[in-house]
Design a protein around this nucleic acid. Structure first.
Lengths: 208, 208
DNA sequence: ACAAAATTGTTGCAAAAACAACAGAAAAAT
DNA sequence: ATTTTTCTGTTGTTTTTGCAACAATTTTGT
């Protein structure tokens, strides 16, 4: 029940005339939304890839989260108190569902299929998001670049096995792990020289 | 609706004879639960303080999250795939509600008040958890100890103003920010010498 | 009230990460 | 097809962090 639910199916079901839903398309590089004012926006990425990014005062880019098909995001999940400007950037063509979330139980006038399905599955959708965030916290709490890399490779290997292609470019990965790119590159070189991994750009093979 | 909801009230309302709910007490230092097997446990901290902790292979303690009254936690929020052992430790006397979560819509036989309320408010409860986790990610993604400290002080000052008492001991704070205690202590000394803050143990005053 | 244990602040030193600059490779744009 | 831009790997240098050890203070336990 929890894992075989496909948001896409859910999207297909909703009646497109639901007054509280908008579907928008974005081109690569466009800003999908910013987390500045509290519009209670709740979004589902129907297709494409997007990043939740922030720039610190040094100009370092931080990729706080990466969204892919079926990911959920939006202002409702973000504490607007902080004075950090987050931006959701489309990495490629994206189709996004935008929903104005006030209360899960507040439906549109017609109580359409979309709302019925949303109420039914929202808890599960959102629990899996928490799961993701918890893993992310575990990763970021690691102290060394090496541990972050190995921890991240671990997560990927659970899904794809010993050989996989990073969902990030090397530069983006460093932003995702919140470390300096060249330092990370140096650490990758060490891991290679120690025969822990093979790596060529995005292609990684774990040798342990 | 979202923010004035009090889980305690919700607890008071539920009929204690709900077959899917357990209430347990824990003494300081006791392990409330571990995230090792997938029992789909969902917990609410009714009173007390507890930490979600992990120890890395160097013996460094990591406080992944701190729970206080009304916090929710449990295995359902944790990706059991990772080979990291997390423990929820009681920091003081704790009263905990344990609920076996299969599906939010699967109620007990009597469809008691607890289940009615849970279904009604679960989305809001859980959204506020995501908000907390997102802030935490922002904090951990900061690269320097100084930025982490200032970022954390920022969060606290939003709530308490320029003067406040840390909810952590200095040692615990370093575990929470995932930095070395002595390094953090050194950085605090620098912030003091630069007249950015005043600090004496848990007492902090921001001078900016 | 006293002893034991834990916490705190400090410092020297070693290790790691950030910063900066550069050349070659790949990707994107025209 | 060619130019421009971005990405990648590398390395020297500086800065920051981690580690270790210690004394002083505070908290805890008996």
């Amino acid at each position: 029940m929890k894992n075989d639910f496909n948001v896409i199916e859910f999207i297909k079901e909703f009646s497109t005339n639901c007054s509280k839903v908008q579907i928008k398309n974005f081109e690569k590089g466009e800003t999908i939304t910013t987390f500045l004012v509290n519009r209670n926006q709740f979004c589902i990425l129907i297709s494409g890839t997007a990043d939740l990014v922030k720039y610190d005062y040094n100009g370092n880019k931080i990729i706080a989260e990466r969204f892919s098909e079926n990911s959920i995001f939006g202002e409702i999940f973000y504490n607007i108190n902080t004075n950090n400007e987050f931006i959701v950037e489309a990495k490629e063509k994206c189709k996004v569902l935008l929903y104005s979330y006030d209360d899960i139980n507040e439906k549109c006038k017609s109580n359409c299929k979309f709302h019925q399905t949303l109420v039914r599955y929202f808890p599960d959708i959102i629990i899996s998001k928490i799961t993701d965030l918890t893993s992310r916290i575990e990763l970021l709490s690691r102290r060394t670049t090496r541990d972050k890399l190995l921890g991240y490779f671990d997560l990927l290997s659970k899904q794809y096995g010993k050989s996989f292609t990073l969902p990030f470019s090397v530069t983006e990965l460093s932003n995702y792990l919140s470390v300096d790119r060249s330092s990370m590159s140096r650490e990758l070189a060490v891991l290679k020289s120690e025969k822990f991994i093979e790596q060529d750009r995005r292609k990684i093979k774990l040798l342990y």
